[in-house]
């Protein structure tokens, strides 16, 4: 279970309300396993002494056969939104999805139904969505195309009995490294009926100043959310995020001093070993994969490298710089095992 809290101040602008400042307080709890996940969020916004809002969302999914490449899952959410002097707007949706790939790279296709309720009035929701996601190293990308059709809405400029339907095309990018997380989101809405078309977008940045505390900045513009009853707005905010667990970014911030080695798959059984952080005229390596005979590395810019077939699994490695002593690379665990002689341990993919 991961828990976090956001406290901050915002500047908000909406079509029907003068630009105003607001205090925000958000709480999020999330947890899960390979068979599903559950996330709940609550956000309170106080714009001035007369106006405040409260919104809560519970979302989750159950996954079938998590280790399979193609699998089914069923997800959904329940949302509540209220404001000073007005009734609660409740909405919910359930969506079975067919999912391909893993969480790093894949896609999903789903069709869902749901409903909304506000002051004894109800409306239905039909929703179809396709999405893809792709991640590598510290970058994550996602895109989705969805179609929503409702039998009514309680937000926006439409007539009270309007039944909007629209397409949303979204794209997102996130970079997360060295204690800094940066994200961009963009969306375009094409309305087929009773819906304001337009674009929206946001940018955010989180700087982890302590292991469990981040400074969070965000700016953007959102469109009406006819499903949840949330109006469009333009916002800029600054806040502090406090988490229950230490953020991984702190671990990444520190760097290893000295020669570091990495290995990556080239093709077939061939692997490329690279050594960095070395200011030398000659670098050699020896290990299981060289039959414990020294091999000189080729210099490519600031990197020393060589390619050689190596079996997947754990290997012992030692390096020598400018003919000095054989040493263990600085970024690997070193061991004398049962033979004596210090070597580093590296796992080859």
């Amino acid at each position: 279970m991961q828990v976090s809290a956001d406290v901050g101040a915002s500047r908000l602008r909406r079509p029907d309300v003068p630009e105003s400042g607001a205090l925000t307080l958000g709480l999020t709890a999330a947890g899960g396993s390979e068979y599903g996940w559950l996330r709940s969020s609550v956000l309170a916004v106080g714009a001035n002494s007369q106006q405040s809002t409260l919104q809560g969302v519970i979302s989750g999914a159950a996954v079938q056969s998590p280790t399979r490449w193609v699998r089914g899952e069923i997800g959904g959410f329940i949302s509540g939104f209220t404001e000073s002097g007005y009734s609660l707007t409740l909405s919910g949706e359930i969506m079975p999805r067919l999912r391909v790939g893993n969480a790093l790279r894949g896609g999903a296709l789903g069709v869902g139904i749901g409903g909304m309720q506000h002051e004894m009035k109800t409306a239905g929701i039909k929703h179809a969505a396709a999405e893809v996601w792709w991640g590598f190293a510290d970058e994550q990308f996602a895109s989705s195309l969805s179609f929503v059709k409702t039998t009514g809405t309680f937000v926006g400029d439409q007539l009270p009995n309007a039944a909007p339907s629209y397409y949303d095309l979204t794209g997102a990018w996130r970079h997360d490294r060295s204690g800094i997380s940066i994200g961009l989101n963009g969306a375009y809405r094409y309305g087929t009926r009773s819906t304001n078309a337009g674009s929206s977008g946001s940018a955010d940045a989180a700087l982890w100043v302590f292991p469990q505390t981040a400074l969070v900045l965000s700016v953007g513009r959102s469109l009406d959310d006819p499903v949840r009853g949330v109006p469009r707005t333009t916002f800029a905010s600054i806040g502090l995020r406090v988490t229950g667990a230490v953020h991984e970014a702190i671990g990444r911030r520190r760097t290893v001093k000295g020669a570091t080695v990495s290995v990556q798959r080239v093709d077939g059984s061939s692997r490329r070993f690279e050594i960095r952080g070395v200011n030398a005229s000659r670098v050699e390596v020896m290990g299981d994969f060289t039959g414990w005979t020294p091999v000189s590395l080729e210099r490519v810019g600031e990197t020393w490298r060589f390619e050689k077939p190596a079996s997947p699994g754990l290997h012992r490695i030692a390096i020598r710089i400018d003919g000095g002593e054989w040493i263990s690379p600085a970024n690997l665990p070193s061991t004398t095992d049962d033979l004596g002689g210090v070597v580093g341990l590296i796992t080859v993919p």
Partner: peptide, 24 residues
């Protein structure tokens, strides 16, 4: 992750972006 967030619009506090005051 992003897939689920895109699907259910669960971006409530994900970037610290506040849900705005009422405009409905």
């Amino acid at each position: 992750g992003a897939a689920a967030a895109a699907n259910v619009g669960d971006a409530l506090t994900s970037a610290g972006a506040p849900t705005p005051p009422p405009g409905k």
